[in-house]
Structures are given as C-alpha cells and as structure tokens.
Design a protein around this nucleic acid. Structure first.
Length: 556
RNA sequence: UGCCCGAUAGUAUAAGGGUAGUACAACAGAUUUUGGUUCUGUAUGUCUUGGUUCGAAUCCAGGUCGGGCAACCA
C-alpha cells in the first residue's frame, strides 16, 4: 500500500486529465510561444515549466514556436538566447517552429475569410479606426469601407501583398461586430502593411498578420490541444474561437493562468530592455537581472528554478511571490551539491604564537558533509592566518560566539585557538591578533575535551590565493515595484552590487571549474563568473546562507 | 456606465457538500567543528450579507474589494 500523498492538480492539469479521460484527445500537444524581441525571464520559466511539464507528465509533446509577426522588433539574437535558455532549463521541444513559417497559409486563410464576406480592406487611418472603435461602454461605428464587395476586397488585399501601398495606407479587418461589448470583437485588424525586413522571411512580405490572426491559427495548424497563455489574453479568447470556427480548422483551445510576479523584481520585457539600454545593468545577463541567462550566470541551477516553478503553483489569481521562496529553492539544491571552501573577504591577521615558525600542516576538509561518501581536500595550515575581521570583537556583546580577548574558538577543520593579545596601530586600529592554539584539539583527533561555541573559517596567509568576489543584492528597494508610485527606476537599489576585489581563498579554489558550485563557509553559495581569466578568479555570489545571527543582531 | 476575470494565514497554493491542509516567511527550542544543514514545536486564514442543506471555503443570489479590456504590440 502506498502512503504517498497524492499531489493535488492545478486547474490546467485537471482540464488535461479530463480531456484525456473523456477521450477528447489521445495525447496532448502544447507550445511555448515566445516573441523573439527580448530575453527570457523568470516569468517565462513558469510558462516553460508549465507547458513542457504538462507534456512530460501526460506523455505529450511541446513545440517551441517563435511568434515572429512583427519584423520591426524581432531579432535572431533573441531566437538564439531563447533556445539556449529553454535547453538549459532542461526541456526539449518536439519541433522548432516560427509563425512566419505560416505566412503563406495565413494569407490564404485571410483570403478565405474575404470570400466568406468576413473580412474587408479598410482605408481608414489608424486614428480613424481607433476613434470608430467606441469605448468599453459605447458601441463602435462601422467603417465606411465595411461593405466593400468580395471582389474589391480580394483585389485590394492582393495589391497590399504586392506592395502597391505604403505603410498604414490600408489594413485588412475581420467583420465581426462593431457593437460587441468585447472590444476585441469590434472588427479587429488582421493584417497591416509594413515594408520592413523580417529576420527570417527577409523582404518577401510587406504585409504581416497581427497576433490575433496568427497565434490561434498557428496553434490550429500544429494541432495544439492546449494553448496556454496569461490572463491578459482572456478577452481575446472569443476572437481566437471565432477565427477557428469561421475558418473551420482544427479547434485548439486557449486556457489562461496568472503570470508570475516576484517581490523586489520586475518581469516586464519593456522595463528590462530599459535597464539594459540605459546601462543601469551590465546587459541582459547581468547577474542581478531576473532573466534566465542572468540567473544561470549567477549560479542558479535549472533544478532549483524548476523546483521553484513547481512550488509557486498555477492559478488564475494574481500573485506576488516572496523572493525568499526562490532563495529557499536555490539553497536547498546548492546545499546538496556545493563543494565547501574557505574564503576570507575582509582579512584580519592572526598569529598563532605557540605554533612553530615555518611549519606547514596539511589538514583535511570535507568537500560536502551532505554527501554520504564525502571526499576531502587538503588545506594548508601555518602560523599566520587570516580570519574575517567581523569575526573578532574587542568588546563583544553577549551571545557573541566568535573571537574576543580571552575567548576561544574553533578554526574549522583545524585547532581551537585562544585570543591572548590585540595589536593596534597609533590610531588605535586593530592590526593583528595574537592567539595560542591547543595542539590536542586538532580536528579529527580532538582530545582536548573543550567545547567552544564558535567555529570560524580562515586561510593560511602564505598559501592564500587571490580572488574577486561579486556580492549581489536585490535590484529594487521595494517589494512591489509595479505598484510603487512614480517611475520604477526611482526604486533601483544603489547597493545591488558589492565587489570584493581582494578576497583570500584557500588554494583548492585555484582549480575552480565553471560547472561547479561552491559554498564559501559561513558566506554563501558561489560560482565562477565568465569574467574569470588566467590572472584572476572571479566569483559570483548566487545567494547568501541563511543568517540567523544577522537577524539576532538586527533585533538589538 | 458595458463586458470579462478573481477573492482561503504575511506570501503562495490545496481541500470539488462532511476535521481548513502544505510550502515559504515569522517565532520558540533541540542537534551541530558552518550562527549553515537537520529535527521538534507555536501563532496566524475561508471578503461580506442572505439563501439551500443535518452540514457550505465548496452550491445559489445580492453586495464589497482587486484586476483586465478601446496598439496597424505580443
């Protein structure tokens, strides 16, 4: 008998299961339909996990389809980054497709609707069309071109395609209902004229279909069973269904879920583009960005992102997810896989006065205590070491477990030391601390019988190697950036990047690899940045460790 | 003033007429050679008013609140 709790289904999974159970479909086909006009972000990750996840779970497939119907904003660079991101997240698409692959077919669909008297060419200007649409509470008024004959429409549309007209001179509109309470049904535009170069079709076309006359038809052509999109497309659904019905083609169905929002971040392509263009960040993959490429560079793992998308759920209610959930997911995974290393960011010299001058001991340190068969690396120990400056206080508050005059601490993987003397310069700044060590307290063979509260990380000064460490904080200062009054850029966190130019790392890090993750003891999780060169190691901080001591201090 | 969505702890998300559960966050404690990990425990919730019912988060009606809809964007 199984004791495993049955995981509850989200509302889309319920629809899919019902469709499968009822025999409506034998197998499902979903699609992930990005427009190649920007980089994918954490919000897209939710959509990717949903669409591909559904197909994986129910034995179907997912197409990657680029919604490239607007040649003026779309570029091949984006196509490549999107493909890389989806792959990195761990998903494989059945087919790589483009809405532009269907331009000829879409054109024929339009001709079909013209012949059925359901579409017409309109010579009105953009402003005139907007004005005649009415308002949500007032019906629109029909265009004077609405009743052109089929023959005339056919000829005009052919001339549009042939390039006889300038941009904006004419459009093709669906003849639906100018009085509909749904604005999207008030004779929506199907085609506009754009003499622009398309990233795939080049100059073959000068008319391009709009979203409403491309997306649903593309779904139908591919026989997509479940076309999943975000809430703002709900009012488009009647039109989606209308085109499919009038064209009498495969009936794909659209379902809508609430997009992801995360505290202290933005997921608007427009705003992200602005951050990049205005050089507020260093590019789409600046590790502070919520893009998938940035998160990859920062050290997030695909496993942790998928886990996050699983945990946030799928529903129709608008939501704002705590950034701390993302941090939890990444820590949970990194804790299992990260190699433990010691790195001192802000050094304070410690001299162990009773340790032999010139002596070097190789100590063993666990690579990862979470591993059942943990392996070890060698760590050199000597008379002079660095500890973190914040790990020493001359006048410590109560409950301070670190080094202080007369106090003892454990050096991780090494000995217990006791602070004997504090050395200062003329200004009174602490320059170094003199300690004695307990030879019988060596890690692994401790028979000192002494228990200490604190354990510090450290590096041997003569063996330390240099590294640059980049510490990131949230990009915005307010939880809900979209709701904050004024311009979103007013809430940029000025301290979102802190660079430690000269950190001291234990020698094992000399051989750090790009695909490895590290936990710098008591500091956080780190990974090598691509700026690393022969001369310089550069690490990105993916996320800090949970820090209950910082919280304790905050209370004081 | 039209149409369309939605409303369950701080944040998300379950319970589909029968004990309001889970995760993150918070708080308290235990363990710990990382103030990490792990473990234990605590507090906090069904928008509102009626109705149906032995019984309502769930079904019905009204209200309130939040969101969306008038790009030749997607």
């Amino acid at each position: 008998m199984s004791t495993t709790e049955e995981k509850s289904l989200n509302f889309i999974e319920e629809i899919v299961e019902e469709d499968l159970r009822s025999g409506k479909y034998k197998t499902i086909l979903t699609r992930f339909p990005p427009e190649p006009n920007g980089y994918l972000h954490i919000g897209h990750a939710k959509s990717i996990c949903l669409n591909f996840g559904l197909a994986n779970k129910y034995g179907g497939a997912t197409n990657l389809r680029f919604d490239d119907t607007n040649p003026t904003t779309e570029e091949t660079e984006y196509v490549e980054s999107i493909k890389a991101d989806v792959k990195w997240l761990g998903f494989n698409w059945a087919k790589e497709l483009y809405a532009s692959d269907y331009f000829e077919q879409l054109y024929n669909f339009a001709v079909d609707l013209i012949k059925k008297g359901l579409a017409y060419v309109d010579d009105s200007t953009s402003d005139e069309i907007a004005a005649s649409k009415g308002t949500p509470t007032q019906p629109g008024t029909p265009s004077i071109y609405r009743d052109r004959s089929v023959e005339e429409n056919l000829q005009l549309f052919a001339e549009m395609r042939a390039g006889k007209y300038k941009d904006g001179e004419k459009v093709l509109r669906a003849k639906v209902d100018m009085a509909s309470p749904n604005m999207h049904l008030r004779d929506p535009i199907m085609y506009r004229i754009k003499h622009a170069h398309h990233h795939r079709t080049g100059d073959k076309w000068c008319i391009y279909p709009l979203y409403d006359f491309a997306h649903g038809q593309s779904d139908s052509i591919e026989h997509i069973t479940h076309s999943i999109c975000t809430l703002e497309f709900i009012p488009h659904r009647p039109l989606y269904d209308w085109f499919i019905e009038k064209l009498d083609i495969f009936p794909s169905h659209q379902y809508e879920f609430a997009r992801l929002n995360v505290t202290y971040t933005i997921v608007s392509k427009r705003k992200l583009l602005q951050l990049v263009n205005e050089k507020i960040v260093d590019g789409w993959d600046d590790p502070r960005m919520p893009t998938i490429s940035a998160m990859r560079r920062r050290g997030f793992t695909p496993e942790s992102l998928r886990d996050f998308c699983e945990k946030i759920g799928v529903a129709k209610r608008e939501n704002l997810i705590d950034y701390s959930l993302l941090e939890f997911c990444v820590r949970e995974h990194l804790n299992k896989i990260a190699l433990r290393r010691m790195v001192v960011f802000d050094p304070l010299k410690v001299v162990i006065t009773n340790y032999e001058v010139g002596k070097v001991e190789m100590l063993k340190g666990e690579n990862n205590p979470e591993d059942e068969d943990t392996t070890y690396r060698d760590i050199p120990f000597s008379r002079e070491i660095y500890i973190e400056r914040e790990d020493f206080m001359e006048n410590p508050p109560k409950k301070y477990f670190r080094l202080a005059p007369g106090q003892m601490v454990r050096l991780k993987n090494a000995y217990i030391i006791k602070c004997e003397e504090v050395m200062k310069d003329e200004q009174g700044n602490i320059t170094e601390v003199h300690c004695t060590y307990l030879p019988e307290s060596k890690s692994g063979g401790d028979h000192s019988n002494i228990k200490v509260k604190g354990t510090l990380h450290w590096v041997s000064i003569p063996h330390a190697i240099n590294a640059e460490v980049r510490e990131y904080d949230r990009l915005f200062t307010v939880e809900n950036v979209d709701e904050a009054p004024g311009d979103f850029k007013d809430y940029i966190n000025k301290d979102s990047l802190h660079v430690v130019a000269n950190a001291y790392a234990e020698p094992a890090l000399q051989h750090a690899k790009f695909d490895e993750r590290y936990q710098f003891l008591r500091k956080g999780y780190f990974t090598l940045d691509m700026d690393t060169s022969e001369e310089k190691l550069v690490f990105n901080r993916t996320v800090t460790l949970r820090d209950t001591w910082a919280k304790e201090k905050g209370k004081a």
